[in-house]
């Protein structure tokens, strides 16, 4: 049996779990290619028009492998943490895909509540039977998969003796280099080091959240807000770049919350959509880097006495 895993959305964070799980069950696993022009075109063609770019791209990934596998995994991620939810498009992702794309192979759409080992195991038990009825094998595969997830470290924390920015946004915008037009390497080329949220401990993130009048409903909102504010107030970075998909409802709230909290701390929002011309993003990133450079120079020019 060939299991297909589309390389979109939260694939970048959780792929070791899915790949290991289905491999250990004895299935052959294929993934789609890295996002490219064909995948973008397929996504735009099949997906409903109103969706955001990452959702469209996920559709493209599904289409690109749907005829090459016997079973497709469309993770219906409901929760990553207790009392928090993620973007509603994730909960309805299987419906969006199955109603937009014809001739789909059998699909795994069971909801994933990744809030504890037990709830995640419940997902593994149900989905495992689609490949094998050997419960021992499923349990073993789950164990292996969980280990690989724990050992999988994502995140960027460049060690350059230079300017540094906090790169904030949803993981699929940060790690899909087609969506973000190689933003990280563009920044590195300009001599800017990058730090992402994975290196900020959870309790520091929650410390910032406690200052809000209400705990955010969404996991990404909590993480992005907490990280951005923590990095700015601790002056660990010289500026913040928030990369956001055009149309994103959650981002529209978080970006305002962050700006509100950090005041005049340098902050740049990069909106991404179907555009593939890089001139726009380059102008903004270069101008932001110039600005940071001048601000740093200016600060160091201010005499310490009077």
């Amino acid at each position: 049996m060939i299991v297909g895993i589309p390389k979109g959305l939260l694939y970048y964070k959780y792929h070791p779990f899915l790949i290991t799980f289905f491999k250990e069950l004895g299935a052959e696993v294929i993934t789609s290619e890295d996002t490219n022009k064909d995948i973008l075109d397929l996504g735009v063609k099949y997906c409903v028009d109103e969706a955001c770019l990452p959702i469209k791209i996920f559709h493209g990934h599904v289409v690109s492998i749907k005829d090459k596998c016997d079973l497709m995994v469309i993770p219906r991620i409901m929760q990553l943490n207790k009392n928090e939810f993620i973007c509603p498009k994730f909960c309805g992702l299987p419906e969006m895909v199955l109603n937009s794309i014809d001739n789909m192979p059998p699909t795994i759409t069971d909801p994933i509540y990744a809030i504890s080992k037990n709830t995640l195991y419940r997902w593994a038990k149900t989905t495992g039977t689609r490949v094998t009825h050997d419960t021992f094998k499923i349990k073993h595969a789950y164990k292996k998969a969980y280990e690989s997830l724990i050992n999988h470290q994502t995140g960027i924390n460049d060690k350059l003796n230079n300017m540094k920015i906090a790169l904030v946004g949803h993981p699929y915008n940060i790690y899909d280099n087609y969506i973000n037009m190689n933003l990280v390497s563009k920044l590195n080329k300009l001599g800017v080091a990058v730090e992402t949220m994975e290196f900020t401990q959870d309790f520091l993130i929650n410390l910032e959240i406690n200052n809000l009048y209400k705990k955010p409903f969404w996991t990404f909102a909590r993480e992005n807000y907490g990280f951005a504010v923590n990095a700015a107030t601790e002056k660990r970075v010289d500026g913040i770049i928030y990369i956001s998909s055009f149309n994103c409802g959650i981002d529209s709230v978080i970006i305002e919350l962050i700006k509100d909290r950090i005041g005049s701390f340098p902050f740049l929002t990069l909106k991404v959509d179907e555009h593939t011309g890089e001139a726009g993003i380059e102008t903004r990133v270069e101008a932001f880097t110039d600005m940071l450079e001048r601000r740093i120079q200016n600060e160091s020019n201010i005499p310490t006495h009077g």
Binding site: F246, S264, K271, G280, A287, F288, M291
Partner: peptide
């Protein structure tokens, strides 16, 4: 003070 302290551009 004669340096760019903030800027914004239209989005996409």
């Amino acid at each position: 003070n004669g340096i760019v302290s903030d800027f914004a551009m239209n989005t996409v």
